[in-house]
Design a binder for these strands. Sequence first.
DNA 1: GTACATGCAAATGATTTGCGTTCTT
DNA 2: AAGAACGCAAATCATTTGCATGTAC
Lengths: 138, 138
Amino acid sequence: MQSRKSKQRELVLKVLTGTRSHPDAEWLYEQARKEMPGISLGTVYRNLRLLKARGEIQEILSGTSGSRYDATVDNHYHLRCLSCGSVHDIDVPVREDINAEVEHATGFSISHHHLEFHGLCPSCRPGTPLSQSINLQG
Amino acid sequence: MQSRKSKQRELVLKVLTGTRSHPDAEWLYEQARKEMPGISLGTVYRNLRLLKARGEIQEILSGTSGSRYDATVDNHYHLRCLSCGSVHDIDVPVREDINAEVEHATGFSISHHHLEFHGLCPSCRPGTPLSQSINLQG
DNA sequence: GTACATGCAAATGATTTGCGTTCTT
DNA sequence: AAGAACGCAAATCATTTGCATGTAC
């Protein structure tokens, strides 16, 4: 937990906070480079891990390709387009009550839950093949 | 979709169906080898991918380490222990209604959702460190 | 001054893939 | 016979890490 301040860490967080998309490490690296050309990809990864451990950002797992990251702090749900791969935040009430329900049913002590919806975004409805566009801006 | 039968594929599915744990590819490979020593890890991966594409099995993503797999076909939720990493199925009613809710709220057409709970399993309560046991049997 | 953070490059580890061969239909 | 699927090993790709140096406190 003892971590010092660093320009690089602040920049990574700033870049991530500054977008509504849910970018991967590579994209964050490219953006960060624009402002600090010397920053390294390793440092981006190191800081993403640290920020996640601190609870300041969230990691969104993905089977293929790399993880996406999200700087939104409050609990919320995600929506992923099966065609273009974009990830969006959803403005739907979080069901905190189900944690207690699961605690009683299982004997675990639940700290949180992740809910992700999969479907097709409006632009992909017609049946756009996956390869056509990987849209990070959502 | 044109896929032929193969002893290897049947075996991988049999092994996965035969356990209530949610093993990774390596574990499935080791088990499969007991019955068919010549099977290769690449084949296990190939078949896991094919079976998943067919909808016969499910992939459980995990940030660190490899994916876990689940042969349970009907929709259900997962519970992961933050300490030992074990994954369990939960017997809690699936909320199909929230798909429609999200469709209306977002304009996406939702096909399904994934819900995963994180917490500590009864055996890990005291505060067992992560490294002590990676329990695949749950 | 201490020890955390960085840049760089090499290493890791899960998963995929190319290729020649074997099996299913 | 055609082309799936296999075994094997090399390749890929995201992410991690060792090391020497820089920097925050």
